[in-house]
Design a protein around this nucleic acid. Sequence first.
DNA 1: CACCCCACCTGCGTGC
DNA 2: TGCACGCAGGTGGGGT
Length: 274
Amino acid sequence: MPELPEVEVIRLGLVPRVQGRRLLGVTVGEKRLRQQSETMALQKWLPGRAILEIERRGKYLLFHLEGGVSLLIHLGMTGRLLLLPEPAPALLPVHLIFHLEGGLDLAFQDVRRFGQALVFPPGVEPAPLAQVGREPFSRQVTPQWLATQARGRSRPIKNFLMDGRILAGIGNIYASEILFAARLHPGTPVGRLTLADWTRVLKETRRILKAAIAKGGTTVSDYLNSQGETGLFQLELLVYGRDQEPCRCCGQTVARMAQGGRSTFFCPKCQQEK
DNA sequence: CACCCCACCTGCGTGC
DNA sequence: TGCACGCAGGTGGGGT
């Protein structure tokens, strides 16, 4: 579910309510997430430590705790981080509950269990973050840099945009939207894009991600922010999920195709192969 | 390397 | 109504 905007909206909701508070304890649910630290490790490193800072890297949330400990959270496809007044009402199965100072529970709930919750002792760099590419809003990302990354490569631009080791945080929904806005066919081999194309791709990436954050993210089925609210950006999607409907720009029927096992939505007229 | 495909999970909508 | 199938915002491991 959550791509960069959704994770950022969750972060923005947590910062004023959670940052500075102490973690009192952790309750571990029955079923483990695909990547979850051993209960012993969670119990050893988390209780008693204040949350100093909450950082986002790509689709990961990194909680910096007192004493150099860090807690890495990834929401996978269906993960939610819900802030609840204690005692947490009996929701659907919850995988982890972080009990916070001041009568708050932070519940991690994830039906499909593709999520991650990993603790790292002081001085240990969270391994998954080594794979995370550059932030789309970073000054380190320029059209020239993107062109360099793409040079000599043949993979489709859609797959390139979704490769989190290059640009972090873009998933299946926003990749389709970005390519529609940039008027590029999703199958275009990246090595074939011009600097002008990359300039457009970057501009549209930033514009769309920013707008999605401002609208509270996109809810297509499961996504809720930390307050349990849906996003609103689904109302502004121009191609994603609009298979067989008229293009908002030209009226042509929006098409769907499979790329890397995922659905891509695009307008065959607005986004022609070059 | 670069690239592709599949596994990992559960739930929901569709069509027979 | 019941069941099989396809599909869903993720990453990463293994094969070509």
